[in-house]
């Protein structure tokens, strides 16, 4: 394992205050190194999505620290957090990942363009090539299948210098075969040196991960390496 790309250090996230306060995360610590794919599992409302949001700087923590490639996100302004998302961390959501008014290649190039880079098209084409959908470069999202869209989304999440992919149920809207292919792609990109966090409901998807983290009521209740089976999930519950 190399230096950690993502570090969550005793992170607490409380939504609201007083009687309506919701503890989404309570003292969660997690480290993801380059080349490592961590699956986060847990029932609805356990804080999986909040974990992803704070990891990419979309959400701020109430206590604790989040470091992406060594940078403490707590100390950053909103604009600097946006820069982290442009340069360090990318998201893949369950569906509707792509901006419908941009073509596949434009979607991939978006973070680079937002970053003020020049001649981004050829670079984005290369990124599409890597995920095997270069031939769809000029198609709009609604002209692509769900699996193709997720591939483009993965390409976008990791385009440029970004080495952290935060995937929130990326296969949730796909049939199982396509879903597996997408996870295989994710796995491969991680193997090429990225760090990945995969939120999923399905334990067979978690099998693609190097490590599985179980969340319940905002706490990590278990952390399992490599071997995940439905049986082990039952023990968690």
């Amino acid at each position: 394992m190399t230096a950690p790309v993502l570090e969550l250090d005793d992170v607490t996230r409380i939504h609201g205050s007083g009687a309506t306060a919701v503890h989404a995360l309570r003292g969660v610590s997690l480290t993801v190194a380059a080349g490592e794919l961590v699956a986060v599992m847990g029932p609805s409302g356990s804080g999986k999505s909040t974990l992803l949001n704070v990891a990419g700087g979309l959400d701020t923590v109430s206590a604790g620290a989040v470091r992406v490639e060594g940078t403490d996100l707590a100390s950053l302004s909103r604009a600097a957090l946006a820069a982290v998302r442009r340069r360090s961390a990318g998201y893949v959501f369950q569906d509707l990942n792509l901006i419908p008014t941009l073509t596949a290649v434009e979607n991939v190039a978006l973070p680079l363009e937002l970053d003020g880079r020049r001649r981004v098209r050829s670079y984005a084409l290369a990124a599409l090539e890597e995920v095997g959908v270069a031939d769809l470069a000029d198609r709009y999202p609604d002209e692509m299948s769900g699996g193709q869209q997720q591939r483009v989304a993965i390409a976008r999440a990791l385009v440029g210098e970004r080495r952290l992919v935060l995937a929130d149920e990326p296969t949730g809207a796909l049939d199982s075969e396509t879903g597996e292919a997408v996870l295989a792609l994710l796995r491969r990109r991680v193997d090429q040196g990225c760090a990945g966090v995969l939120v999923t409901h399905e334990s067979r998807h978690a099998a693609w991960a190097d490590r599985v983290v179980y969340l319940r009521d905002g706490c990590i209740v278990d952390s399992t390496a490599y071997d995940v089976s439905p049986g082990s999930l039952e023990t968690v519950r």
Partner: peptide
């Protein structure tokens, strides 16, 4: 695993420069 992609070496073209 139903679909295992063949492993390709990552092609890493140089990152496009930022507008000056």
């Amino acid at each position: 695993m139903t679909a295992v992609l063949e492993r390709v070496e990552p092609a890493t073209p140089p990152l496009p420069p930022r507008h000056p």
